[in-house]
Amino acid sequence: MKSKWLSFYAAAFYAFLYMPISVMFFFSFNNARRNVVWRGFTFKWYGVLLRDAGLLGALLTSLKIAVLASLLASVLGLLASYALVCRPPRFGRAFYSSWLNAPLLVPEIVLGVGLLSFFVRIGVPLNFWTLACAHAMLALPYTIGSVRARLLSLKGSQLEEAAMDLGADHWEAFLKVTLPLAKPAIVSGALLAFTISFEDFVTSFFIAGVGVVTMPIKVYSMMKFGVTPEINALSCCLLALTLILLVSAQVLRKSAKA
């Protein structure tokens, strides 16, 4: 009896999680301009999507920014984690590492407003590059989290000490031992950073300069003229992309642990 109720609860729980997504998915094949009534099956919205130059341009911008931001966040994240784990400050290690998580805790809208006034204040024009930097900052806690966990487990195994014992200086030990072993965690962090940047709306909305239109911003502007199934089709593509990235990040993280 008990297990029946539990199964029901579990089914309801998953329905709650996935119903909106599945509605979006099915209506991307709806042969109608509106997302309300089902009028038959079609692939035409995927075709419309592929011919929409504005949307594809926004997609390209988003991809470029995401690549840049994830590269930046990975490099900075690796450096920060290495410093925290392998060359920890004498005092206040917990202080330093918890403050690196600030972007996770501060509401994104506050960050957006803050970044906007910051860039205006220091007189840097808002453009493609400032947006990439802002995204890198948003993604940093994720890259640090991924890499730091790996470095901590490596430190426990004394591998870098073993390398130095055999004659490798700090740099050689890092290049020959730590870096290759941390690589899966670095890549997994980079993939997370990529999705963070790619999906970001709030921050981008505040500080995307004139002419920088990312995908989420473009979608938002399209919504003002009513939601056509083209957006559903786009969302499905994005969903697939994000899923692939997240799964590969997870797989890499697993293989790093083994």
Binding site: S157, L159, E161, A162, A163, D165, A173
Partner: peptide
């Protein structure tokens, strides 16, 4: 520093490079 000492160590948990 350790890398300039002519001394090598066998670690308790081996510390082999995986």
């Amino acid at each position: 520093p350790p890398y300039r000492r002519d001394i090598h160590t066998v670690f308790q948990h081996y510390a082999l490079f995986p």
